[in-house]
Design a protein around this nucleic acid. Sequence first.
DNA 1: CCAAAAGTGTTTGCGGTACACCCATGA
DNA 2: TCATGGGTGTACCGCAAACACTTTTGG
Lengths: 234, 234
Amino acid sequence: MTRTEAESADTPTRVAVSTVIFGLRHLPGSDATCVVLPLVRRTRDPHEGQWALPGGWLGERENLEVAASRTLAETTALAPSYLEQLYAFGDVDRSPTRVVSIVYWALVREDEMSSSQEGAQENVAWFTATELPELAFDHRLIVDYALWRLRNKVGYSRIAHGLLADEFTLAELREVYEAILGRRLDPANFRRQVENSGTLIPTDRFRTGSHRPARLYRYNQDVELAERGPLEVR
Amino acid sequence: MTRTEAESADTPTRVAVSTVIFGLRHLPGSDATCVVLPLVRRTRDPHEGQWALPGGWLGERENLEVAASRTLAETTALAPSYLEQLYAFGDVDRSPTRVVSIVYWALVREDEMSSSQEGAQENVAWFTATELPELAFDHRLIVDYALWRLRNKVGYSRIAHGLLADEFTLAELREVYEAILGRRLDPANFRRQVENSGTLIPTDRFRTGSHRPARLYRYNQDVELAERGPLEVR
DNA sequence: CCAAAAGTGTTTGCGGTACACCCATGA
DNA sequence: TCATGGGTGTACCGCAAACACTTTTGG
């Protein structure tokens, strides 16, 4: 096929946008925290009844990121604290009819999550990332890849803040890292690493618990180590 | 908008696939090597006459990666030694009519390049990455992002091998790194780093030049540090 | 023998890990 | 006062940078 022929073979394709939305949940019994994500039960023919990622068709005059935000609002009623494109999936056989899916992944803050989960819509449920049901289409592959990206990115950027409220203790921040990475971190070393990174601003307030109060920190907006895509390239 | 309405709003979109193809070129005069990429002169209305990334419309029954390979073959007549999805660009205003572009980036080997550049097609030319002309659409942003990804990835994966022949000296490999990173590297430290990485297999052959012969190495296929996307996630 | 590139050895400093230790608070 | 988590000090290890040095070839 020559370039000219390719240029004229202008066949429209159905384009969908889906989003892998990550949040945190404290397990009531133990002191552990785990990564959770919302899934939508399908009410239509391909894979009807199975759980799938929240998503929808790309609007005619809708930017990709806007479509992802819409998805997020429809299932969590929240504004994302972090939103980044994950990958474009377009294999011919990934759906009975050809669909190209632009997939985003997002973080929602823990303090806001509880409110939205109470007023949950029908057919939406939150699952622990390590205990997922069978998913529709290739969505299991997509979630696994998003989890890989989350775990990777937490190591070289500061996205963990996207899962916390404005003010937080170092222990709470460490909890986020431990939940994402799935392993315990040394509190002493964690403190120094994150202090030296210059991304935290200590406040004068303290979280008073059952023991010695812990200083509250805020995220330093000036520092933006996260790389979300070509749009941020200066 | 509810999910149900979104699900029924099934409006097809025009989907294109473009590829940023990177190669290397030795500058005849100096001993420097630089990154080069092929561009195609547009012969059609939007941005006619300007240079643009090689690409075309996604075929109805064509996987995304296959479409990218086709693009690559049409402009270089080569099989890519490395091919990875870069990003999906879909802003409404990036083209007069709405187009979602799935962009890939690729590496072609230096030893194969010369042959294809001689039999170059009309309207295709290779440019030094640091001296690009004005590009059509948002292709300048795309190329800059691909360059950022290339420079980033060379630091934590072994994609530099994708720009060399099967057998190469450490100096040749170092040249690739220096061309991509744009700075000189210490030969001694470079040797140790790459030797300790376990990605190289020494051969018994030597490259005999004007001075002491240098050992030739091969790339260890077993080690695959590169991460090309969700398809490689086990 | 000389120039130049291949290849080796050694020192230094930095960042991460392990772990001992002190501090402040509620009960 | 004790238990518990907050917070500090310190020794160690591995890696990478800097750079002096030896080796091997062509001319």
